[in-house]
Nucleic acid binder design. Structure first.
Length: 822
RNA sequence: GGGCGAGUGGCGGAAUUGGUAUACGCGCGCGACUCAAAAUCGCGUUCUUCGGAUUGAGGGUUCAAGUCCCUCCUCGCCCACCA
């Protein structure tokens, strides 16, 4: 008897698949297409981790499953190789980023191949290939030409460790999300992408997409659309009303209760408004605020501080004087950087007014105690003609009233900021712009793309906020494409999110040299049918790439308004102790070690998919792979036993009708469950269904010792097909042994027949007053009267019913009989 | 503070969506095989005072609740002085 040894069969079938090219996706195939996308990896020096392994295992299971359903499946893979970690790693190792990338990609590739993934490698690329980033640059220029890429001097987040500017999305709790360094503020001329122009589209587009609500909600929250109004207030000394202080508010209903104004320390009017006797205090405060780090300023528990400017503004509705304050709880970057404070109905304003003894006027009726803040809805009071109006209605009524005098306008605000697109680092796509003294920023002509990243000796970042490319004069100095006079290249590079913002489109036509992708191929492949990836990319890559795609659609470059029809986020695999896997804790599990330990890729894939539901974060169980290995071994032994029994019994086909029906029922039941589970990403339950079926088949084997030859052949074939997406090498080997010459992975997914799944007898629970008292087995076709009679007559039930009145009988076919007795 | 989600054996988890709670697997225990160990196979494994009790706690709806409703507790993720 042959033993199951993954070390023999896995490399063998990997080589065979590579040679036959069975996983190649065919452009313009007449079969229905299915694009199964998993996020391409960043090839770090550490190799693939369990998160990658989980994602690609799931992706491969579905790719194979869809292929067996007759789809022309595209399951591609590439490398997102530009970016800071590689560059930092290369600096440490004293090698070039190119060399580091080559080594890391080779390592990743070897690991991915050992997993037995059904990837179409002919479409692979790296974002660092000049043939690829030529098109990243070309696409950037489309933004530039349409005014969506612009240069602006602005205060941005600067990572002093990585020595580069960062986007808002890359700063988490005041730290750079990659290296955890506290960020600083730096004023730099930066390239920006106008993602805010697409804020509404990015929200509204979600309606038609199959995204889990937690992903959609997170994006909506991040964009942070709020409907409100800008309201003008005037300094009491500004008699001509030429110089308004404009505030943004979503609570126009509370303007009668606005008792003071607050400006952010960075607000441009601070200096002008400040009266001379307050100038010293205000200047000191503004300076102190500037010195604080983001993390300090964002601490919501901090006591509010502020300083009076000496100025007063008039409340346009009450005509009362409102002192104008400066305080750092008001953010310069949101709205207008100035607010009207309504201490009675806003917790922050309340705290501030209490501390500095400012006037508090309640304008919404409320049950809450007099000396407290009330933020809930209610009817207006102390509000002139608006008294008695529900505050929700008052919002528009008051805006309309003020608008008559030009004092208020409706305004939609977003939390989303434009995307800071410049990085002062070497290892990224050069931004294809030439600065001409006469013509300003000029696009590099298309026929001169790509702007190739020059090879340099020293690519370390510098503290002066200048990209290392600025130290390469022979590259920087060029001529203006417009006038031919001396000009200089832009030396900033793109962020590593650039290449990943459109990579899925390149898989449709990976090696095209004349366009980023052929339009006919884009039309054929269309959208990504299912995109799996990490939850951590929801407000980064996933939002960025939707923005790019929506812009491309507007330019007529792609056929669909959205890139991804459906998105799912898999859960994280934690270390066995429930903490995050991390190098510093030394609890990182290496997938290659699991494979090499003798369990093989198939058992590892099964154990990952069996671990927990798809989207659930869960600790890794190092013993689990032994369990799935045992499962494979038991299935292997069963098939070997059948093959041997068959050989011995050549020429005498025996069929035992009872067991035959049981084999059929067991396998068809399994087909049904695995099919419905895989349709809903129920990978873990799909596996347990196969385990249950196998346990059942062992019992049947004990009954008939493989006498029912035809039933066993069909049943075992189905079992091998069911396990094929999960354990592809294993299934391929057994499929061949069962007499097939064509791959199991191109075979048609087995179908089940309800007639075979059904049993002739059913077991029902019998309850008295809802408590389980017995079980009865009746014929499947038994009607209610027969079943209830059988239940009443049951040996355990009859004595319990004696002398009692049955007030009601509940009958659920095939499930329960419940007697309600008095 | 806001948004989303989750609490079921020693552990990961299952439950046809209101109908026999604890499937499947891990771990553990006992046994078989073995000089022995590993591997493999078989049996057992929520608790129990053997009446019954049990899905974070308490209440409600129902013939029937892990599932629906209310109150509360705990944990996780994301956002957070966003006016």
């Amino acid at each position: 008897m042959q033993r199951y040894n993954p070390k023999d069969i896995e490399p063998k079938w990997q080589a065979a698949w590579a040679a036959s090219g069975i996983y190649k996706a065919e452009d313009f195939s007449s079969k229905p297409k299915y694009v199964m996308l998993t996020e391409f990896p960043y090839p770090s020096g550490d190799g693939l981790h369990m998160g990658h392994t989980r994602e690609y295992t799931y992706g491969d299971i579905l790719a194979r499953y869809k292929r067996m359903h007759g789809y022309n499946v595209l399951f591609p893979m590439g490398y997102d190789a530009f970016g800071l970690p590689t560059e930092n790693y290369a600096i440490k190792q004293h090698i070039t980023p190119q060399a580091a990338t080559d080594a890391n990609v080779a390592n990743f590739q070897k690991q991915l191949e050992s997993f037995g993934l059904s990837i179409d490698w002919s479409r692979s690329f790296r974002t660092t290939d000049p043939e690829y980033y030529k098109w990243t640059q070309w696409l950037f220029l489309q933004f530039f030409k349409h005014g969506l890429a612009y240069q602006k001097e602005s205060a941005i987040s600067w990572c002093p460790f990585c020595k580069t500017g960062l986007s808002n999305e890359e700063v988490v709790n005041g730290r750079h999300e990659r290296c955890d360094t506290l960020v600083e503020k730096k004023v730099l001329p930066q390239w920006m992408l106008r993602i805010t122009d697409y804020a509404d589209r990015l929200i509204d587009g979600l309606k038609d997409l199959d995204f889990p609500s937690r992903i959609a909600d997170q994006q909506i929250n991040w964009i942070g659309r709020s409907e409100g109004a800008e309201v003008k207030f005037y300094d009491v000394d500004d008699d001509d009303e030429t110089n308004p202080i404009t505030v943004y508010t979503t609570r126009a209903d509370t303007i009668y209760g606005a008792t003071f104004l607050v400006l952010a320390p960075e607000h441009p009017l601070v200096e002008q408004l400040t009266r001379s006797d307050h100038a010293g205090a205000v200047a000191t405060y503004v300076k102190a605020a500037a010195a604080k780090s983001d993390i300090e300023r964002q601490d919501t528990d901090r006591e509010k501080t502020g300083v009076f400017t000496g100025a007063y503004a008039t409340n346009p509705l009450t005509a009362e004087y409102m002192p104008v304050w400066v305080a750092d709880y008001v953010l310069a970057g949101y709205g207008t950087g100035a607010i009207m404070a309504v201490p009675a109905h806003d917790e922050r304003d309340w705290a501030f007014a209490k501390k500095y003894d400012l006037k508090i006027t309640r304008v919404i009726d409320s049950d809450t105690p007099e000396d407290s803040v009330s933020t809930g809805p209610g009817k207006l009071i102390n509000s002139g003609n608006f008294d008695g109006m529900p505050n929700v209605e008052a919002k528009t009524a008051i805006i309309n009233f003020l608008a008559e005098d030009g004092l208020a306008t409706l305004k939609t605000q977003y939390r989303l900021r434009d995307w800071i697109f410049s990085r002062q680092r070497y290892w990224g796509e050069p931004i294809p712009i030439i600065h001409c003294p006469e013509h300003g920023a000029v696009a590099v002509p298309e026929d001169q793309l790509p702007v190739v990243l020059p090879a340099v000796d020293n690519y370390e970042p510098s503290d002066d906020a200048k990209s290392p490319l600025s130290r390469v004069p022979e590259w920087v100095n060029t001529t203006c494409p417009t006038c031919g006079k001396p000009a200089q290249r832009e030396t900033d590079t793109m962020p590593n999110w650039a290449g990943s913002s459109w990579y899925y489109l390149r898989y449709f036509d990976a090696h095209n040299d004349t366009v980023f992708a052929d339009r006919k191929k884009l039309d054929y492949w269309g959208e990504v049918d299912l995109y799996m990836g990490g939850m951590e990319h929801t407000t980064l890559h996933l939002l960025y790439s939707r923005f790019w795609h929506e812009f491309f659609y507007d330019q007529g470059l792609v056929p669909t308004p959205e890139p991804y029809k459906a998105r799912r986020g898999q859960g994280i695999i934690l270390a066995a102790d429930g903490t995050k896997m991390s190098k510093s804790k030394g609890n990182v599990v290496n997938p290659s070690e699991i494979i090499d330990s003798g369990y093989g890729a198939d058992a590892m894939r099964l154990s990952i998919a069996f671990l927990a539901p798809y989207d659930q974060t869960t600790p890794w169980n190092p013993e689990g792979v032994a369990g799935t290995h045992r499962f494979l071994q038991r299935l292997w032994q069963l098939v070997q036993g059948f093959i041997e029994a068959n050989e011995k019994r050549e020429g005498e086909p025996l069929d035992d009708s009872i067991v035959q029906a049981d084999i059929l029922r067991t396998t068809h039941h399994a087909i049904k469950r695995v099919t419905t589970d895989l349709d809903t990403l129920g990978f873990n339950t799909a596996i347990s269904a196969q385990m249950e079926a196998l346990n059942q088949l062992y019992k049947l084997r004990d009954q008939d010792e493989f006498l029912s030859v035809n039933a066993w052949q069909a049943g075992l074939e189905a079992m091998v097909q069911l396990v094929a997406p999960f354990a592809p090498h294993f299934a391929e080997e057994l499929w061949q042994q069962l007499g097939h010459e064509v791959s199991v992975h191109t075979s048609a997914w087995p179908q089940y027949d309800e007639a075979n799944v059904a049993t002739d007898e059913v077991t029902l629970a019998v309850q008295i007053n809802g408590k389980l008292r017995s079980e009865i087995t009746v014929a499947a076709e038994a009607d209610e009267a027969t079943t209830v009679a059988a239940a009443q007559a049951d040996i355990k039930i009859a004595p319990l019913l004696e002398g009692k009145t049955i007030r009601k009988t509940i009958y659920v076919a095939g499930k329960i009989v419940n007697f309600v007795v008095g």
